[in-house]
Structures are given as C-alpha cells and as structure tokens.
C-alpha cells in the first residue's frame, strides 16, 4: 500500500553552544566554545494512510514542530528515513512543494499591507495554476471559508481568526494532497477555533486530503482527527485512535459554572470541586463516573445557570495520565 507519509527512525539533534558565565568564561568560550547536543526528535516511526487525519500532539518543546518541519523538507533529519507522497522531503523539496500545503499558527504568508486576494493571486502564479482552475478553486474555498467580505481588506485590518481563515485558504489553493498544520488554532478564541477545525475537517472529508496536525490543544485533535500520536521529549508515547485515547486517558472534563445564586453545592460521583467563589464554580468531572449532562442537570436543580463552559484537560494532564498508566 502506498502511504501518504512513512517515517522510519526519524531523529533530529540540534547542536547548541554552551552559554558561558562571567567575563573569563565568555573569553574562554570565544577561544574554545563548548557545544551540547540536544535531541529534539528521538527515533520516531509511523505511517499515515492517504486521506487519514492524524493529530500529532504533545506539550511545548515535545518535538512536534521539528517533526513537521522535517516532513515538509525545511529541516534535515540527523538520521532516519522520511517519505512523503513517495518523495524524500529534504532532497525533493521543489517537487514536494506542489503537493503539500502548510499552515503555521501565528505566522503569516499574507502580505501585511495588501488584501489577502493579492496573496492568493501571487500563489496562483507560484504554483503554476491554470487561471480558470484557479478562479474556480478560489471561489469554492472563499465560499466554504466565508471570507468573501474579507478579500478586499488589507490583512493588517483583519482579526486573528479572520486572518487564519485566509491563511488556510492560501495553503489550499493549489489543491495539496497533504496539509501540514502546525498549531493552526493557537491564540484563537473559542468560536474562531471551532470554525477553523470544522472547515479543515470538511475540506479533508470532501477531497480526501491527508491532514497532519500538530497541537498542544486536545480539542483540535478531537474535532478534526481520527488518529492521534502523542509525543513528549521527542518520543512516541501513544499511537492509536482518538476513541482509544479518550477511553483510556481523557476521563476528565473541567466544568465552569456561573450562577445567579451566590452559592452552589451538590455531591455526585467523580465530581471534584476545584474552586468556589460567589457566583462562580469550577469542577473536575470524571466523565466515566458521571456524564457531563447529568452534572449539568444536577446543577440546574440547585441554581439558575447564567453561563457554563466545558473544557478538555490540558495536554500536560493527558501526558501525566499516559505516563501513570504506563507505570501501572
């Protein structure tokens, strides 16, 4: 079977100069500097089928971005083999460029003082798109991402969420077979995150685009992907379906309740009260013991709820669960 991505024993070391202390130390460092090797990615192997949506998650500094940059041909691995759509990224970067799309959160490929439409036109030239095919593709994406009203505004006037929608469209214009998304929702508010996640998934389902998504937000993975690889310190901790990860490790949700009444209290299995302030209450809920809807129904019996949010556990907590489970 031909895989979209096949990675075998991928390792990346960075050589960093050891910082010197004091005047004498700096002088010594100038004459004979000492270097340390830092292993960012440690012997990782995995395969991704065409059309699959894979989340590559882990805390900050886990090696996610380094991996994505090696797979897109920006960085060269220290050792190991990488094949993306049958090409070797480091060697065949130009050829690969036509077949992949990339989105890097908090970075921009749009020209700051110009409308996003100008960057789209430029990218059509870069990717040698036929003018008619480009117009059709652009119209389709503009409709799907609902950015028609944004096309004539300079990028500097767009909100982060609006800009990210334009960034994603810019990365999809040439119809890439695989899209690498590096923290695409970082810094976005809840609504903007939700829009971006749904659009990426819809696009992938409609055209069979392979998605490789890195994030430290478990919500990205749950809403977009079917499979998840969890890494930490450059190593794979978990590689399976989202359902299995959820069943095994994501057993808690954090619920924040804002009430009309000053006080609120009730008891339920697996509910742990983290914070109690007048009108505001934060609870940890073990969903396998008491489902979220039951918790909310119970809360409604005791108070009038003005607002509520349900959050996934932090990535660091998921990693802790995985470590703990491995030891047990």
């Amino acid at each position: 079977m031909s895989y979209a991505v096949a990675v075998s024993n991928m390792t990346k070391d960075f050589v960093l100069k050891e910082p010197a202390k004091g005047f004498v130390g700096n002088l010594k460092s100038l004459i004979s500097p000492k270097f340390n090797t830092f292993r960012a990615v440690d012997n990782i192997s995995f395969k991704i089928e065409r059309g699959e949506r894979l989340a590559f998650i882990g805390p900050n500094g886990a090696g996610k971005s380094t991996s994505i940059k090696m797979m897109s041909g920006i960085l060269h691995p220290t050792s190991g083999d990488i094949s993306v759509l049958g090409l070797t990224p480091g060697k065949d970067r130009t050829q690969l460029g036509y077949k992949i799309g990339t989105v890097f959160g908090q970075r921009s490929q749009l020209w700051y003082h110009l409308p996003a439409g100008d960057t789209f036109d430029l990218l059509a030239r870069v990717y040698d798109l036929n003018p008619k095919a480009y117009r059709e593709k652009k119209n389709e994406l503009v409709k799907l991402f609902e950015i028609k009203h944004l096309l004539d505004q300079p990028v500097r006037k767009l909100s982060l969420g609006q800009r990210m929608r334009c960034e994603v469209v810019a990365s999809l214009l040439h119809g890439p077979e695989i899209v690498f998304l590096d923290e695409p929702t970082i810094g976005l508010d809840v609504t903007a995150k939700s829009i971006i996640r749904d659009l990426i998934k819809e696009r992938s389902q409609r055209f069979g685009t392979t998605v490789f998504l890195t994030s430290h937000d478990t919500g990205d993975m749950e809403r977009v992907c079917d499979r998840v690889i969890v890494i930490n310190h450059g190593r794979v901790l978990f590689d399976d379906t989202i359902e299995k990860l959820r069943a095994r490790y994501i057993k808690k949700k954090r619920v924040t309740l804002m009430t009309a009444e000053e006080d609120l209290h009730f008891e339920a299995r697996g509910v742990n009260w983290l914070e109690k302030k007048p009108h505001k209450f934060i609870l940890d809920v073990e969903v396998d013991k008491t489902p979220i809807d039951e918790v909310i129904a119970t809360a409604l019996k005791h108070a009038r709820i003005r607002d509520l949010t349900v959050e996934d556990p932090q990535m660091e907590d998921v990693i802790k669960f995985i470590y703990r489970a491995d030891k047990e």
Binding site: K69, S72, G73, I74, R93, T94, Q95, L96, G97, Y98, I100, T102, F104, R107, S108, Q109, V126, Y127, D182
Partner: peptide, 13 residues
C-alpha cells in the same frame, strides 16, 4: 527570527 521562513521554504520556488 519569526519562523516565517518555514512558509516560504515549502513553496516550489
């Protein structure tokens, strides 16, 4: 410095 080079290096140019 900003890492924007990552976008530009993945283009076929």
């Amino acid at each position: 410095r900003t890492g924007n080079v990552a976008y530009l290096l993945t283009r076929p140019i």
